[in-house]
């Protein structure tokens, strides 16, 4: 069954004519994703990988019936692109762009929610339901279909863990990169709620990082409402305190948001926490 997206999901690509946008349009089509259109202002009428390009999202939606969008737009214009998508009636928006200002994202996150739409990211690898649809930048060949739901704040670390799972014969139901920025759309808890209702998902892997309190909220949710087994890895245990490790979010404040506090709360909630990302598969295997 999977969550959020499936083979029926009709996707448009915002920024389809750019270097990354066009390359990954090809890769997504190759994977089987239903890419029905693209948007680049003043490039309407062109085609990229056989996909028609429109000038506005509204036009793309009315001509193709798309309900989902993926955004490869530079940071200065990305927030506006999300709002354009919501106004055009898009329900699921995946924002790949890295480096969007926080003040822009605060407004966008609230606006998206107020309209009942859903945002993944920004600064995320996207979402994939293996064998059905890939809406993102992840290398498709490492994924395989199965009972494990994966939620992660990091992009490449997700690939590491998925590679580890697939190599051990553990397929995935849906894999969601929620993004590494301080302000993101869909959070860990939103994904856990969806995985809870998904009968195909029998276990969940959660990849967190130091900084912020989303992991703490997820641990609290697991403790109170989530009975499926969960395996957790928290990156940044050895990061020096007070230093920023790339993600604007990975800042440690006065004992809050540390790897130790997150690990302790997940353990208390009954999740299995592993020391290294390459140990995830063994932990999940023990669930079955």
């Amino acid at each position: 069954m999977a969550i959020f997206v499936n083979r029926e999901t009709k996707v448009i690509v915002q920024g389809i004519t750019g270097r990354d946008g066009s390359f990954h349009t090809g890769k997504m089509l190759e994977y089987g994703t239903k890419i029905v259109g693209g948007v680049t202002p003043f490039k309407g009428g062109l085609e990229v990988e056989g996909v028609p390009v429109f000038n506005t999202v509204a036009e793309a939606v009315s001509r193709t019936g798309a309900d989902t969008s993926i955004i490869y737009i530079p940071p200065a214009f990305a927030a506006g692109s999300v709002i354009e998508a919501v106004e055009a009636g898009i329900k699921n928006i995946v924002c790949i762009t890295e480096g969007i200002p926080v003040t822009d994202m605060m407004t966008v996150a609230h606006y998206v929610r107020s309209k009942g739409a859903r945002l993944f990211g920004p600064n995320c690898p996207g979402i994939i339901t293996p064998g059905e649809t890939k809406i993102g930048i992840m290398p498709g060949h490492i994924f395989s279909r199965g009972p494990v739901g994966v939620i992660s704040r990091s992009g490449t670390l997700t690939y590491e863990v998925v590679h580890n799972l697939s190599s051990a014969g553990l397929g995935q139901s849906t894999v969601i990169g929620i993004g590494g920025d301080p302000i993101i759309g869909t959070k860990f808890v939103d994904c856990l709620e969806a995985f809870k209702e998904d009968s195909e998902t029998k276990a969940v892997v959660l990849i967190g990082e130091i900084g912020g309190s989303d992991e703490e909220m997820a641990a609290d949710y697991i403790k109170k409402h989530f009975s499926k087994p969960v395996a957790v890895f928290i990156a940044g245990k050895t990061a020096p305190k007070g230093k920023r490790m790339g993600h604007a979010g990975a800042i440690i404040h006065a004992g809050k948001g540390t790897a130790e506090s997150k690990v302790a709360l997940f353990r208390e909630a009954g999740a299995v926490v592993v020391d290294l990302p390459v140990d995830i598969a063994a932990a999940v295997k023990a669930f079955f």
Partner: peptide, 29 residues
Amino acid sequence: GAGLAMATMDMIKHNGMEPANFLDIGGSS
């Protein structure tokens, strides 16, 4: 990627070595 970079540092330390730096070359090619 920042997450993989942090996890890589974690693995280096776990194996008794010490990282000289954190370096994320970022997304995009």
